[in-house]
């Protein structure tokens, strides 16, 4: 491959190329980065700054904006609906992140202990929800949760008629019902991630633990869990961010209802900006959500680092 390259005739470039390591590349790297940076800055960084700016105004998207300082942020703490939205986001953190990591740890540990056959196929299957559009997932689960859907039909068939209900229209059960869809989506990813981590544990560690007479429980807490701390951190960060950003799932399954019982920050951003004409408030919710994502990711990683050291 290299021989096909023509030697440069430009002597200046040739000496530049022969300079020892650690040389400067002049303007070249900046030329290579510039196109990516321009699009990134124009469509992500600049809008983020604009969102912060917008969040300090009261604006309906059409007429003149009024500067209101931090009022939009204050209402994050006073508006019941917004407080509820952030509360629901935390409930989703449990269903999207904590529960899947718990299930994934046990599941992956069970599968690691005994090298069963068919693991690659299992990986393919449990990973599948990750690649299906959330809208499709939402449509599928809406049909399952429907008053005459699979879930209620199964309950009736089992003679548990008293348990049947309109799951997504229920003030108490709609939030966990939507949350469990999240559990269904993320558990596979988490399990595959943890399986990869556990595969790196040398089998001598299990052997010696068993010689010492350690049971499955001790093995789990003394060997497996400490060995996959890094993977747990990654899995938590990833799924927490997903749970905090959930929009399409709520939009399609419940639109935040019944009442405001399943609304989440990202849905409030959309509703406020494009349905209610409260653009400033929507921007404030978006900025708060960004800060929350940054803080939680940072904390999870800090805690992960501290436990490992």
């Amino acid at each position: 491959m290299l021989t096909s390259l023509k030697p440069a005739s430009d002597p200046v470039r040739q000496t530049a190329a022969r300079r020892p390591r650690g040389r400067r590349h002049g303007a070249t790297p900046y030329h290579f980065i510039l196109p990516a940076f321009l699009i990134y800055a124009a469509f992500l960084l600049y809008p983020l700054g604009r969102a912060v700016h917008l969040s300090l105004f009261e604006w309906d998207g059409l007429s003149l904006a009024t500067f209101v300082g931090l009022d939009n942020y204050v209402s994050l703490l006073s508006d019941e609906r917004l407080k509820g939205a952030f509360g629901h986001a935390l409930v989703f953190v449990f269903f999207f992140a904590v529960l899947p990591v718990g299930i994934g740890l046990v599941l992956a540990a069970v599968l690691t202990r005994a090298r069963v056959r068919g693991l690659p196929m299992f990986r393919t299957i449990v990973f599948l929800p990750q690649v299906i559009a959330m809208v499709v997932v939402a449509v599928a689960w809406r049909q399952i949760y429907a008053p005459d859907g699979v879930l209620n039909r199964t309950l009736r068939w089992a003679g548990l008629d008293s348990l049947t209900r309109a799951w997504l229209g229920d003030y108490t059960f709609s939030l966990p019902a939507v949350g469990l869809i999240g559990t269904w989506v993320t558990t596979g990813l988490v399990t595959v991630l943890l399986l990869a981590g556990m595969a790196k544990i040398p089998s001598e560690q299990f052997e010696s633990a068993r010689l010492d007479g350690a049971g499955a429980m001790r093995e789990f807490f003394a060997i497996i869990v400490p060995a996959v701390r890094a993977e747990v951190t990654v899995a938590l960060t990833l799924t927490i961010v997903v749970s905090l950003k959930t929009f399409d799932l709520v939009y399609v399954t419940t639109s935040g209802g019944p009442g405001s019982s399943t609304t989440v920050p990202s849905y409030e951003v959309y509703r406020r900006a494009f349905e209610l004409g409260e653009v400033g408030s929507a921007a404030a919710v978006g900025v708060a959500l960004t800060v929350l994502i940054f803080v939680i990711s940072f904390l999870v990683n800090r805690i992960g680092d501290r436990i490992s050291s």
Binding site: P47, G61, A282, A283, L289, T290, S297
Partner: peptide, 15 residues
Amino acid sequence: GIMIPAEAVVIPLFF
């Protein structure tokens, strides 16, 4: 940029 949620930037982008 990997962490910035679309929710935050989509409003100013739209307007």
